[in-house]
Design a protein around this nucleic acid. Sequence first.
DNA 1: TGTACATCAGTGAACGCGCGTTCACTGATGTAC
DNA 2: TGTACATCAGTGAACGCGCGTTCACTGATGTAC
Lengths: 235, 235
Amino acid sequence: MSWRKEQRRAERGYHHGNLKEALLQAALGLIAEKGPGGFTFADAARMAGVSPAAPYRHFRDRDELLSNIAQRGFELFEQALAKAWDDGRPDTVTAFMRVGRAYLAFARSEPAYYSAMFESGVPVDQNPLLMTASERAFNIIRAAAERLAALTPPGVARPPALMMALHIWSMSHGIAALFGRGDGARRKLPMEPEELLEAGVLIYLRGLGFSTETAAETEKPAEATRSGPWGPAPK
Amino acid sequence: MSWRKEQRRAERGYHHGNLKEALLQAALGLIAEKGPGGFTFADAARMAGVSPAAPYRHFRDRDELLSNIAQRGFELFEQALAKAWDDGRPDTVTAFMRVGRAYLAFARSEPAYYSAMFESGVPVDQNPLLMTASERAFNIIRAAAERLAALTPPGVARPPALMMALHIWSMSHGIAALFGRGDGARRKLPMEPEELLEAGVLIYLRGLGFSTETAAETEKPAEATRSGPWGPAPK
DNA sequence: TGTACATCAGTGAACGCGCGTTCACTGATGTAC
DNA sequence: TGTACATCAGTGAACGCGCGTTCACTGATGTAC
């Protein structure tokens, strides 16, 4: 153990050079392992191979570090969702479904960021930077919902985009939290979370009056409620 | 402080009489205050007015206490959902919507139980009693979904009840976790969580081919997407 | 009904531990001239 | 180009704290006879 520390020190010299980043990475690893409550400032310092006093040069305290992680998480989340949305290409419904999948993919592949963002108790509404980052991420979903709402077939009442976005967000978060986590803390599911969400969103959109058949043909959506992991179709 | 302890002691004598229960209540209070990670065994003992060694007569360790709380939480949850479901009276759709509202009401009024159940990292699948309690609660939703699925209008494919139950559960949990918590850790919402869930479920059911108009007339559901907190109806 | 005894539930003191935080310090780096 | 100096980033020792846990103990309760 001790030689390890010495070695690191020899390798890197007195100054770490990139300690802030190293601490963030260390914290991410610890959060992924033990949850957002289970990481300590001292532990992060140890993992970065640095004395327990060193982190104070970069973060006021534990909460500030956590808050930094949440903020970066929202930024990465926004990027992932924006990339999936791809400004609605090739068609709005396809892109919309892709956003849903990207949501779950993020929660699964970045459980540490995800729990820092949504389950760490970080007071999002009390930190303007965090608030903004959070809203920017949500706005991707909202913008997508708006484009979708604009496509309502004639004769059908146009649904409020904010409501759609909140419904989709809620269902995505629910599935991610209950079944779609990258770490161990999740419940068993007889199918992939992605399939569950996709089917749910398609049914929801149909309920709003969208004929998901058109663009959905590419992704065989209607089938999702009739066979596959859900069991055989009822006679 | 000290006289307080002495007084309690005087009041109750050497034996507490109901320490197990008192510890559970104390833990609930602490969880509600600081989250499931933020309560300690020692703290619970202190709140119950008892020495730090006393809890070991009733719980092997902190985790066992937490696990007990989660289990009782699932039992209360099941009762609340079952009561709301009321075996589908007066009609299936109305009762179904009532279950949704009961879900959110539970999360709001019992945030400590709720987070012990879903956010404390208690390994539900490794404790048979807990697993059973959890499944029994979910089965209320599932049974309700089954009754609903059986009502599918002729000519519409009957949806798998398990899938329906998982969708409803996910959306409920998503809304509860993001917006509907009794404690401070929740996001702002321009309407009541109950309204959001109700609208979402109605849209979802319509997407499955249910004409929610019938039973829904009592609860004016179609309106939910056209006015009210969602803003004015689009022209 | 009374007494002896076993069992139970809570005590209080003690322990080792790791955390958060502060402090005067020191080695490295960058910059003014 | 070289040197003096300011600034910065990390050190390591120390502190107080509260936690989890163990231990021999003791007061209360229940029960056999």
